[in-house]
Write a protein that binds this DNA or RNA. Structure first.
Length: 823
DNA sequence: TCCATCCGGGG
DNA sequence: GTGTACGGATGGA
């Protein structure tokens, strides 16, 4: 009996059954039951554009027959159709084959014929093709028509005769299970699943938490489950997965660690990790960055998703779980000496082991919460791009753009361009072009500064100047065309149609408009995480278009378009600079899309009027925005003498006293606290109080304190990361020398460790004077070293702007020292 | 300064 | 599997 069933598709794969490819779409029904929708009717195809008569070509293709060892490969069917290639109508043939794997074989034959213009869309994965062609958006409400069937699966199956998207309503609380393992790992042993067992495995879900371990550990009220061996631990893990039946399994670096590790250990005991909903085993794809896949259960590696998709805008120091969790959900892990786990395990240290169990569970719980935080972003990206969570969560931005475009191309009946050949790639790699314009500032301290910037400069250029491969150098005349641009350096000229809308440019316009609508909705519905994730996804996608155009692997690659985008960018920002000067503003600085104007005797209102005037003449959706008013700003000179002002290095203060710093040491790690503190304080005095005497007095006072040994040692600590193991260094810098000492003392130090040291006074090389912080007292530090290597470099450029020389900073009797330092 | 390689995360 | 990888830091030539 034919019936309708609504569900949310979560995962997709296909299998060949009786010589036909069959799609399996795993999902959740509206009443939260697991289900698998099976579609036997979809066939693989690719596209051919003929050069000769289309019927004649079709006949030739139909006759193709390939004898292989086990099978004969034939063309299953051919359809004529009309599509567009870069906006131009084209008659095409859709060539169908029996199996997806036949596509490249048939394609390779036809590709060589000179009676065709080209072959296209021959490398779009079968399952992804299915989602696109059927208009299905994973995770959103979908309806299948058909009947329940009996495929051998862990969940009920439903054979679909037809399938369609119902709405963009997304599955709102999937059943998530976070996992984390701890392994036995003796010191200096690289983590190795061949040698070392899993000793704990934690799972955390909704109203479910468990730590499985194979030693009797007294965990108090921890949900510890004891088993007798590692093999039993793995069996128990399987049982729990089956009983809990999660929609989603998540972990942190679980693609590269937890799941491959479990799989390796299971293999050792000949245990089948067949937790897939089709009874298949976890598959670990080891190509490059590995990925662990479970059929029907979505495995999300949070590290990958966060690093690739959620991370921009947020500046993570690193991507350790602790760092990321602290930043995204404000939670930290308990401090545990994980290197000592093997000792506790060997010595049966019950108390320590209980702590490790707690730690293990906490990691899983952290993952669970991180997933919760990431879910809106994942959902919204899926809704836009339209690929399944497993693959989408591992995509780079260029891939997100590409799959978005592939879906849109299908919707617009556009033929997708091919990926570059090896030859194309070489050519693309050899090409480079000019980027953004940066205005060189004049060093100085300025008052009353207004900053304007172009809102989404590159996306708005692509939209407003109609930038697209199909509109590039269109037949209409290039003169008097507002979309014509000539490159300043090479003289190349590009122009874009004013009549016909381009594929890329209209898509980006749609993305931008959609985002404004979402932002509008957010005004009434503040703090809605879904809306925020949606506008963010749209913004990220729009911002990636330009990079995608110039990305060598892109299908819609066009260096001409990429060149035109930056050239229009330079054109518009330079025009603003020019007109601002004409209006009598002093232009202080400009970088890519922003411009800094000194008001002088003008009012804020005058600058707004200026902005409005600019905006009245800008094309399309381009817009110059008022970024803010800053009472004070400082620009310094570049390091090299006589090269003028430094680009990308300045500090400004807003009316509410907040200082924004770009490029100064204050934001860098490899600098002592005293250096940072003095720099920050001087900036503050200059920008807030505009009192150069006071700044000078402050620095002099600090220098005196430094020389009188009044600065505590912890403010003098310099931190440097060891980039390789100590033995690997040719030049022994101070941090390496200290690391050597640490090793002698039995402190475990290796590549990646951060070495903290202080420079002590005395004769000899700096590296011999570098001490561990606890080896030195306050009167032993080398004041002159800190003066010359930390304090002076931190502030000399600032004082230069104020009209002081370096010598003014230190007392008279020290000038000899300084001269020798400054040469 | 440019090119090649290594590493990230995990215990 | 109708496929293929990234990107930044670092160190050596």
């Amino acid at each position: 009996m034919v019936e309708k069933m609504q569900f949310y598709p979560l995962d997709i794969n296909y299998k060949i059954i009786e010589g036909k490819p069959v799609i399996f779409l795993f999902g959740k029904t509206i009443d939260k039951k697991q289900v698998c929708v099976v579609d036997e009717s979809f066939r693989p195809y690719f596209i051919v554009i003929p050069k000769i008569d289309i019927t004649e070509l079709a006949e030739k293709i139909r006759k193709i027959s390939l004898e292989e060892e086990k099978e004969t490969i034939n063309v299953l069917d051919i359809e004529k159709a009309k599509m567009k290639k870069f906006g131009k109508e084209a008659e095409i043939l859709k060539v169908y084959t029996q199996l997806p794997s036949h596509i490249p074989k048939i394609k390779d034959i036809i590709k060589e014929w000179n009676i065709i213009e080209g072959v296209y869309e021959y490398d779009i994965l079968f399952t992804r093709r299915y989602l696109i062609d059927k208009g299905i958006i994973p995770m959103t409400l979908t309806e299948a028509e058909g009947e329940f069937a009996n495929y051998r699966l862990r969940v009920p199956s439903f054979r679909a005769e037809s399938i369609k998207s119902v709405s963009d309503e997304a599955l709102d609380s999937p059943k998530v299970l976070a996992i984390d393992i701890e392994t036995y790992n003796p010191p200096d042993n690289i983590i190795d699943s061949k040698q070392n067992p899993i000793i704990m495995l934690a799972m955390y879900g909704k109203r479910f938490s468990k730590v499985i371990t194979w030693k009797a550990i007294e965990g108090g009220d921890l949900p510890i489950e004891h088993v007798n061996s590692e093999a039993e631990l793995i069996e128990k893990f399987k049982e729990h997965i089956e009983a809990y039946s999660p929609d989603i399994i998540t972990g942190y670096f679980s693609d590269g660690f937890d799941l491959p590790y479990i799989k390796d250990r299971a293999h050792k005991y000949k245990i089948k990790l067949d937790i897939g909903l089709d009874y298949s085993e976890i598959s670990v794809d080891k190509k490059g960055e590995s990925a662990a896949e479970i059929a029907g259960i979505v495995h999300i590696d949070l590290l990958k998703f966060i690093r690739k998709i959620m991370a921009r805008g947020i500046n993570f120091e690193n991507y350790k779980l602790n760092t990321v969790a602290a930043q995204l959900i404000g939670e930290k892990k308990d401090q545990v000496e994980i290197e000592d786990l093997h000792i506790a395990w060997d010595t049966n240290d019950k108390k320590k082991l209980a702590e490790f169990c707690k730690y293990n569970l906490q990691d899983a719980a952290l993952c669970y919460k991180l997933f919760d935080k990431a879910y809106p972003q994942l959902i919204e990206m899926i809704k836009i791009v339209g690929q399944a969570p497993f693959s989408l969560s591992r995509m780079s931005f260029s891939q997100l753009v590409e799959w978005y475009l592939l879906r849109q191309a299908h919707l617009h009946n556009e033929i997708a361009p091919n990926k570059p050949s090896h030859f194309d790639l070489q050519k693309r790699h050899s090409q480079s072009y000019t980027g953004a314009f940066v205005f060189q500032p004049k060093p100085g301290l300025y008052k009353n500064v207004v900053i304007f910037d172009f809102r989404s400069l590159y996306p708005s250029i692509i939209s407003s100047h109609n930038i697209d491969i199909g509109t590039l150098n269109a037949e209409e005349h290039r003169e008097n065309n507002p979309n014509t641009i000539t490159l300043e350096d090479t003289g190349e000229t590009f122009w874009f149609s004013t009549k016909k809308k381009g594929f890329l440019s209209s898509l980006i316009e749609e993305i931008i408009t959609r985002r404004s609508r979402v932002k509008e909705m957010m005004k009434k519905d503040k703090d809605n995480p879904l809306l925020d994730a949606r506008q963010n996804s749209l913004k990220l996608l729009a911002n990636s278009f330009y990079g995608y155009l110039g990305f060598s692997m892109a299908r819609w690659y066009s260096i001409e378009c990429a060149k035109a985008v930056t050239a229009f960018g330079r054109f518009h920002i330079k025009k603003v600079i020019h007109e601002a000067k004409e209006k009598g503003f002093n232009v202080l600085y400009s970088d890519t899309d922003s411009v800094f104007l000194e008001l002088g005797d003008k009012k804020k209102k005058d600058s707004i009027d200026f902005m409005d005037e600019i905006n009245s003449k800008l094309p399309g959706i381009m817009e110059l925005e008022y970024e803010g008013f800053y009472p004070s700003a400082i620009f310094v000179s570049a390091k090299a003498e006589g090269t003028g002002g430094a680009k990308k290095r300045y500090a400004i203060i807003s009316e509410d006293g907040k200082i924004k710093i770009k490029g100064f040491e204050t934001v860098r790690r490899n600098f002592s606290k005293i250096g940072k503190q003095v720099q920050m304080k001087v900036l503050e005095i200059i920008l807030k109080e505009n009192d150069k005497e006071k700044a000078l007095k402050y620095v002099k006072e600090k220098i005196k304190q430094l020389r009188d040994h009044e600065i505590p040692v912890d403010k003098l600590i310099i931190s440097t990361q060891l980039t390789k193991d100590v033995g690997g260094y040719g030049n022994v810098g101070p941090h390496v020398s200290v690391a050597q000492k640490m090793i002698q003392k039995g402190i475990n130090v290796s590549a990646g460790s951060t070495i903290r040291y202080v420079i002590a006074k005395g004769p000899g090389l700096i590296r011999d004077k570098a001490k561990l912080p606890n080896e030195i007292t306050q009167d032993e530090y080398d004041a002159e070293y800190y003066l010359n290597h930390q304090i002076i470099p931190a502030v000399e450029k600032l004082f230069e702007v104020l009209g002081y020389k370096k010598e003014d900073l230190v007392a008279e009797h020290d000038q000899r020292d300084l001269k020798s330092f400054f040469g």
